[in-house]
Design a protein around this nucleic acid. Structure first.
Lengths: 193, 193
DNA sequence: TATTAATATGAACAAATGTTCATGTTAATT
DNA sequence: AATTAACATGAACATTTGTTCATATTAATA
């Protein structure tokens, strides 16, 4: 059992608070109150309020990007690649629901140049998914469709999933959720009549 | 051609600004600057900053609710009802993309009791969609699936659509988007093998 | 044990923020 | 023309906010 340092504890709690209230609405005094410490103490853990947001966002975004890279580097078919991508998305949302919540809701409060960095990585991720879809359509694995709309709709149907993993009482089965969402998305984009 | 009052102009511009920067990050001085007027003048249009958010949010939410009611009051089959719901969702997102953006991103900055009011209406909307899905499954129009996951996924695949209508240069065809999204969602939830 | 790193405190500050007030001007309605 | 409603201004205010500083105390490491 690894001992948690005070800093790690601070990062966890501040993450939850930012998730609850929103980054802009969360003050350093809110955080200090939750941790039962003085505001000034926070600056022993982080450089600034902004850096706190950056910390959480880029850490998880990198996990998404790495998983995408792995999948693209594989020899899997587009269909199998998409399946893997869905699985990875749900797995990350399960493992780190609060960070994922920030990715969905709080990224816009990054300040330049970090904002552009985040956006360009997200755009790359979307383009990589688009490529998978395009390849799949050319191979006849997916039906013909507007790739941009399909990309956004797929991501949209995954983006909310973290909410299932935030409530500690629910404890939903991620495997079952993966099955349901895979069926949903594959039904949406494969051929059928 | 209806003449726009100053207040209407103010509401439009402040809406766009809140969409751009986020409600909490938008200051009254930001708005005043955009409208080239004094901060105090704003209070000739609205009672408070909070009321500005409420104004925009509840107006559009009511449109969503009304359309849902109309559909439920019809004698259409679940399948046809869902089709109508998708159409109405896209139509509202097209007609009022900025308000829809607030519904997606800014509702959480409502303060009580308006927050609870908003949430309960949204919950009702979701439950009404769930009922459509449940009925459709029982009638064999939709395949058997986890209704909660299906509901969230359908709404998730629609929630991003307003972004297409925000950029005035794009001018996408809402009919084509409706067709694509209808195919996507129906593919996702009807039977096929 | 000596030394460095991690954690903690309280006071203080400048800037930003939502709101109010008293007052004035312009436009619409009677 | 008289009256009311809509729009506009600038000054002022109390709070809130992120950040810094000097200075402790505690824990880890050499």
């Amino acid at each position: 059992m690894k001992k948690k340092t005070k800093r790690e504890h601070f990062l966890e709690e501040s993450l939850k608070l930012i998730h609850e209230k929103g980054f802009k609405a969360t003050t350093l005094r809110d955080i200090a109150h939750k941790l039962d410490c003085e505001v000034a103490n926070i600056y022993n853990y982080i450089d600034s309020k902004q850096s706190l947001l950056e910390l959480h966002l880029f850490e998880v975004q990198q996990v998404f990007m790495d998983r995408m890279e792995q999948i693209l580097d594989s020899t899997l078919s587009p269909k199998e690649q998409l399946q893997q991508l869905i699985a990875s998305y749900i797995q990350i949302s399960n493992a780190r629901p609060f960070e994922q919540a920030l990715i969905v809701n709080e990224w816009r409060y990054l300040s330049e140049p970090k904002l552009k960095e985040f956006q360009s990585k997200r755009k790359l991720y979307e383009q990589q998914l688009q490529t998978i879809l395009k390849d799949g359509i050319e191979l006849g694995e997916f039906r013909n469709m507007d790739i941009d709309i399909a990309t956004q709709s797929i991501l949209g149907s995954l983006r909310w999933v973290y909410t299932k993993f935030i409530d500690p009482d629910l404890k939903p089965n991620p495997i079952e959720i993966e099955k349901q969402l895979t069926n949903f998305i594959f039904g949406a984009i494969v051929y059928h009549d």
